[in-house]
Measured scan of single mutants.
Amino acid sequence: VGDQVLEIVPSNEEQIKNLLQLEAQEHLQLDFWKSPTTPGETAHVRVPFVNVQAVKVFLESQGIAYSIMIED
């Protein structure tokens, strides 16, 4: 199991704000291929294997929908 690319769908401005804060966490080494800008629009982010669980827990705790787009 390696890195994953998640497709994330924020449903409101609050969730977009939370994702932008997540993007700013440099220690997570997230690679946003497509940043969140509009509710209902997908964002794509590559998550290093060591941080996959932490990111998924965060998304679930914020009620942000996501799916695994690419499993490496």
Rank of each mutant, 00 (worst) to 15 (best):
Val55Tyr: 02
Leu59Ser: 00
Ile8Asp: 01
Pro36Phe: 03
Ile8His: 00
Val55Asn: 00
Glu23Ala: 15
Gln25Met: 15
Thr37Ala: 07
Val47Asn: 01
Leu30Pro: 01
Leu59Phe: 03
Asn51Cys: 06
Ile8Val: 08
Leu6Ala: 01
Val50Pro: 13
Glu13Thr: 12
Val52Trp: 10
Ile70Val: 14
Met69Thr: 05
Ile64Lys: 00
Glu60Arg: 05
Val57Gly: 14
Leu19Ile: 07
Phe49Pro: 04
Val5Asn: 10
Ser35Pro: 12
Ala65Gly: 06
Asp31Ile: 09
Asp3Gln: 08
Glu13Arg: 06
Gly2Val: 09
Gln29Cys: 07
Asp72Cys: 10
Ser67Thr: 12
Lys34Trp: 06
Thr42Asp: 03
Ala54Leu: 10
Ala43Thr: 12
Ile68Gln: 05
Gly40Lys: 04
Trp33Thr: 13
Val5Phe: 11
Ala43Lys: 01
Tyr66Gln: 01
His27Gly: 14
Ser61His: 11
Thr42Ile: 08
Thr37Ile: 05
Val47Tyr: 00
Ser35Gln: 11
Ser11Asp: 10
Glu41Val: 12
Leu30Asp: 01
Gln29Arg: 14
Gln15Thr: 02
Ile16Val: 15
Asp3Gly: 14
Asp31Ala: 07
Gln4Arg: 07
Ile16Thr: 04
Gln53Asn: 10
Thr37Arg: 04
Lys56Pro: 00
Thr37Val: 06
Asp3His: 14
Glu23Lys: 14
Asp3Val: 12
Thr42Ala: 12
Asp72Asn: 09
Ser61Ile: 10
Ile70Met: 13
Gln53Trp: 11
Ala24Thr: 12
Asn12Gly: 04
Leu28Arg: 02
Asn18Tyr: 15
Ile68Cys: 04
Val47Arg: 00
Leu19Pro: 01
Tyr66Met: 02
Glu41Lys: 08
Gln29Tyr: 08
Glu7Lys: 09
Gln25Cys: 06
Glu23Asp: 07
Ser11Tyr: 10
Pro48Ser: 06
Pro10Asn: 01
Gln21Val: 12
Glu7Arg: 09
Glu13Leu: 14
His27Phe: 08
Thr42Gly: 05
Ile64Met: 05
Met69Val: 10
Glu14His: 07
Ser11Asn: 11
Ile70Thr: 15
Pro36Thr: 04
Pro39Ile: 12
Ile70Cys: 08
Ser35Ile: 15
Gln25Asn: 11
Pro36Met: 03
Gly40Cys: 06
Gln4Val: 14
Leu19Lys: 00
Lys56Trp: 03
Glu41Asn: 07
Asp31Met: 06
Gln4Asp: 03
Phe49Ala: 13
Thr37Asp: 05
Ile64Arg: 00
Glu71Phe: 15
Tyr66Thr: 01
Glu13Gln: 10
Ile64Trp: 02
Leu19Gly: 01
Ala65Ser: 12
Glu7Ile: 15
Gly63Met: 05
Ile68Leu: 08
Lys34Tyr: 05
Gln25Ser: 12
Asn12Tyr: 02
Val55Met: 08
Val45Glu: 00
Ser11His: 14
Leu22Pro: 03
Lys56Val: 10
Leu59Asp: 00
Ile16His: 03
Val50Gln: 14
Ala65His: 13
